[in-house]
Amino acid sequence: MIPFSSVSPLKILEKSSQGALGAGNLGVLIARAGVGKTACLIHIAFDKIFSQEKLVHVALEEGPEKVMSYYSVIYYDLLKALGITDDYEYRMRIERNRMILAYLNQSFDLDRLRNNLKNLAEGLQFTPDALIVDGLDFEKTDRKVFEGLKDIAQEAETEIWLSALSHRHITEVNDHGIPYPCSQIDDLFSLIVQLKAEPSGIFLSLLKDHDQPGFPDTHVRLDPNTFLAMV
């Protein structure tokens, strides 16, 4: 059996200063439409779930059924890649450590999320080590919301990973090399990772590493079908 860490896209963090995002911090994955943001976020989720950390997946565009089906597609790819045949223990870990919160019809707001997290903690003793927030529209979201998310991350002592959609036609990049739509709010993020499709494959690079600049020139190459790191 191959250890998950050797194929996880989070391998990119091996090179980072702290090796992880860390509680109280926000991280973001930037990519254009269709490159595989959700798949990549779900790998991050599995990384947590399999190491017995509790994860809340916040879905803003899709219902849980869709989200679960994404997870299961990626899960079976993972089993194959890792050569796992008896997956009972892994399924139990998913069952115990994953919670999906979906917000349909623009019903997402910070108070609601805060309240939902409180209910999870009080009703279920479910206190997440990480949150994944998929589908937040960065262009239409005020800086205040990101600040609020950062507050939530600190109050709940959890890390939060978000995905941001970039566009081919907007090439804006700030002084630190952080592209649109994160160029104005990069101070709020501890880790900024970019996912790029190139003719030769899919590449993940670290643009910001806590207090240090990233190293945009080193990449982790991902399998374009499974989004697992290629060695």
């Binding site: 849980p64 919160l101 979906a102 917000y103 209910n119």
Partner: peptide, 26 residues
């Protein structure tokens, strides 16, 4: 209604239930 989320979750938890998701809509 959303105000009952906490109560409902707690009651399911007490019944050995495993909550897989929660959907907010309006």
């Amino acid at each position: 209604p959303s105000e009952f989320q906490g109560n409902v979750m707690g009651a399911i938890n007490q019944r050995r239930g495993i909550i897989t998701s929660s959907i907010e809509d309006g």
